[in-house]
Design a protein around this nucleic acid. Structure first.
Lengths: 235, 235
DNA sequence: CAAGCAAATCTTGTATACAAGAACAGCTAT
DNA sequence: ATAGCTGTTCTTGTATACAAGATTTGCTTG
């Protein structure tokens, strides 16, 4: 499939999985040949990728896969942490019964996460289920709109997480915390939610580990990225 | 000035001020003639406007200025309310001194808001200063990143506010609440912040008033807008 | 050999021609 | 009169040619 939407998903996925490494050049002509499509629709795709932060555009020079920006990661973590604490606390404080459908969906997601942990190469599937769990929580609170909004700026955080979760023992810890969260919601126990969610999202945000092992993927302030153009400037 | 950025600002402003009313048709050829530019760069501008929610794209049929979507408004208000409560409480709880520069900026913004209230046709200037005040609070907390993120989905909320603030007496109330917020931050009094911010952002969100007076600008669920394509679909 | 200039060759940005679908007008047939 | 077809005329979507800037190559010159 080589529709515009398909190409967008494909490129986004290759960048997320680091198949396309930060710093890689995305030439419009090269990509248009690869996908057998003209430059015009392909540029639309690149525009979208740039908007989401996956690539940096250097006018008249080229498009580079962006380096993971830890500052952006921290901002998104703070945003999600603040929002999800409030959302989950509200869910756990409601007096009206929760929709059974949503609760069952959450449970099933956790069961499927349990399965993936056993398997080899579980990370990709686990990550998708992780997203599904959190999105389902947003949905239960009627806040999918905000989940989608956050996803629009997910390029840096998503890659950051993938690098972090290469350690397999983390998966079990994350799943355990998911169960804690769900139990709190079902059991109407809003007490410990703040600290659970806080810890869950910050998951020892040790830039040290990344700097040690994946420095070549990170956005170094010293680098010459000052001339890049970001699409989100309004004045 | 007819640069791409200029055209974008121009159109965005015309939609915000309702000079371009919801439902108006934005034809690519018409706009390209108006701005003396070809369709290719103009389409980039329309893509951006669509992404921000200012227009709805009906493939192969046309682009319409979007109707104000109250659901989207409510979501943004919740997001800002939750975030700003946390941000302002943190500012008011810090033990380290606040940067003088930032505090002075906030004070000056409020003084200038005071001035605009006196004048006739104050709304536009007042609104810009309102944004400046809140953005300065985000800046003080090192969260401009999140302010900018929210602005990307501001099309509906911004127009909603403009309609609401046509009542002049509201301006004074808003300014008074701004002073309350700033005093809390300076005085390190995090006590009442939750309720102040909550009330400040929800400002009697009576859809009733809008339905009464501006129904023709609102997105009616019954309307035939089901076929529109929104740019933010990933999966 | 090195510095500097110039031209060739990259890149993306823009204009324009063409394709394809949707809406509409107007005809015809019943 | 109205349902249905058909061609025209809108619209946006795509391909391609051209423009303009940035970079690199390579020659020239000291």
């Amino acid at each position: 499939m080589t529709s515009k939407a398909g190409i967008l998903r494909q490129l986004r996925n290759e960048i997320l999985t680091l198949e396309l490494k930060p710093g890689s050049i995305l030439s419009e002509t090269a990509l248009s040949e690869r996908f057998q499509i003209s430059r015009t629709p392909l540029r639309d795709v690149l525009k979208q990728l740039a908007h989401e932060g996956y690539i940096d555009v250097y006018p008249k020079r080229g498009n580079l896969v962006s380096y993971i920006d830890l500052e952006s990661v921290e901002q998104i973590i703070y945003l999600r942490s603040t929002l999800e604490k409030d959302i989950i606390k509200n869910l756990a404080s409601h007096t009206s019964p929760l929709p059974l459908r949503g609760v069952l969906e959450l449970k099933e997601i956790l069961d499927r996460q349990e399965e993936t942990i056993q398997q080899e190469h579980a990370h990709e599937a686990f990550l998708q289920l992780d997203d599904a769990f959190h999105k389902a929580l947003f949905a239960l609170a009627g806040r999918v709109f905000l989940w989608d909004l956050i996803q629009q700026s997910n390029a840096h955080y998503a890659r950051y997480r993938r690098l972090h979760l290469l350690k397999k023992e983390k998966l079990k810890a994350i799943l355990a915390e998911h169960r804690l969260i769900l139990d709190s919601v079902i059991g109407r126990d809003a007490e410990k939610i703040d600290e659970i969610v806080e810890h869950h999202l910050h998951e020892d945000i040790n830039a040290a580990y990344l700097l040690e092992n994946f420095a070549e993927y990170l956005n170094m302030p010293s680098f010459d990225s000052s001339e890049s153009v970001n699409a989100n400037s309004k004045s």
